[in-house]
């Protein structure tokens, strides 16, 4: 045995030890397992922080990163159940896979709250201890449509004066329900508001990602410079990518003269800052903190055998098992 090997082993053991000390427990409080679809998602991070804060001192939590892979999340769920959690909070990677998740939790007989990514509610209804906290995906799109209307009314962005907005669309993922809803309703709401729209090119599917959106926007600008009058993006990260591409060729620069309106969703800090600096036109705030607070309050109620919504101020929607956290538009101070 080389001397090095022993040392490496020792180091690893110490590293492991150091990490677990921090997770050491308080005994009496309930244990809650939290499954997040992906840690490095800006909006979800605000919810994570809110959950951590809201449950601090009230429960012992174990949070796992699904890394964007439903199979990984399933594995993590197995472990949570095996560890005897008193309740599970799930942010599905792939909402369509919820039936398997519900089946597993049902066998364990513990309460579960799904949030953010919306499973088929009929699946949730098969288990009396399952609830959903989300938003109404369509609302975000509709609010984007309303922002489009107010921009149109400013009457200065129809560059070619043809009475129509020529726009490009950035979509999060091809098969994600929220992405589909935002894409569809933003346009339909604007049309309903009386704005005429004409799409330029195909919808860009950029995986919610800034860098990909910037690339796509650069090529769109190269092909259609001067024709694009409006950018609609499913989230702020992609909107920021589009702005980066625009600013490279002199548009949307702080204090500059040329602006192409860009609209996103999430109201991330970066986007709010961009709107305040006048290089972005609007976003829709998905209230991550309210989401986190609602989810944790409901979970604690269920574990303690109280009525789930007791003391939260929220009401069920038509389905009877889902709570909707409202969106709000943000167009600047």
């Amino acid at each position: 045995m080389r001397p090095g090997k022993g040392r490496v082993m020792l180091f690893m053991c110490m590293l492991l030890a150091a990490m677990f000390v921090s997770t050491a427990a308080m005994a009496a409080s309930p244990r809650i397992g939290i499954l997040i679809y992906k840690y490095d998602d800006t909006y979800i991070s605000t919810v994570r922080n809110a959950l951590n804060k809201a449950l601090d001192g009230k429960a012992q939590i174990s949070m796992q990163d699904g890394k964007g892979d439903q199979a990984t999340q399933n594995d993590q769920l197995d472990v949570m159940i095996e560890r005897g959690m008193d309740g599970i909070i799930v942010n599905m990677v792939d909402a369509q896979a919820a039936s398997g998740v519900v089946d597993k939790i049902k066998k364990a007989g513990i309460p579960v709250v799904f949030f953010n990514r919306e499973p088929n509610l009929d699946v949730l209804k098969t288990y009396e201890k399952a609830l959903f906290v989300g938003t109404n995906a369509a609302d975000a799109g509709k609010m984007q449509g309303d922002i489009v209307k107010s921009i149109w009314d400013e009457n200065k962005y129809d560059i070619n004066k043809d009475g129509k907005f020529q726009y490009v669309m950035f979509k999060g993922e091809p098969d994600n329900p929220e992405a589909i809803a935002r894409t569809d309703f933003s346009v339909s709401q604007a049309v309903l508001n009386g704005v005429k729209l004409e799409q330029i090119g195909e919808t860009f599917v950029c995986n919610w990602d800034t860098a990909l959106a910037q690339q796509a926007m650069e090529s769109a600008l190269a092909a259609n410079e001067g024709k694009i009058e409006l950018v609609i993006a499913n989230n702020d990260s992609m909107a920021m990518g589009a702005i980066a591409a625009l600013s490279n060729i002199g548009y949307n620069v702080e204090g500059g003269s040329k602006l192409i309106p860009v609209i996103g969703v999430d109201a991330t800090d970066q986007a709010v800052d961009a709107i305040n600096r006048g290089i972005m036109s609007g976003t829709v705030k998905q209230d991550g903190e309210a989401m986190g607070n609602a989810v944790s309050a409901i979970m604690l109620n269920m574990i303690n055998g109280k009525a789930p919504l007791e003391g939260t101020g929220y009401k069920y929607d038509d389905s009877g098992i889902a709570v909707r956290i409202p969106y709000s538009p943000y167009v600047g101070k």
Partner: peptide, 14 residues
């Protein structure tokens, strides 16, 4: 794997 996860998306297998 499809039967285990019970849903297949474009991210499956990544």
């Amino acid at each position: 794997e499809a039967g285990r996860v019970q849903s297949v998306t474009t991210a499956t297998g990544l």
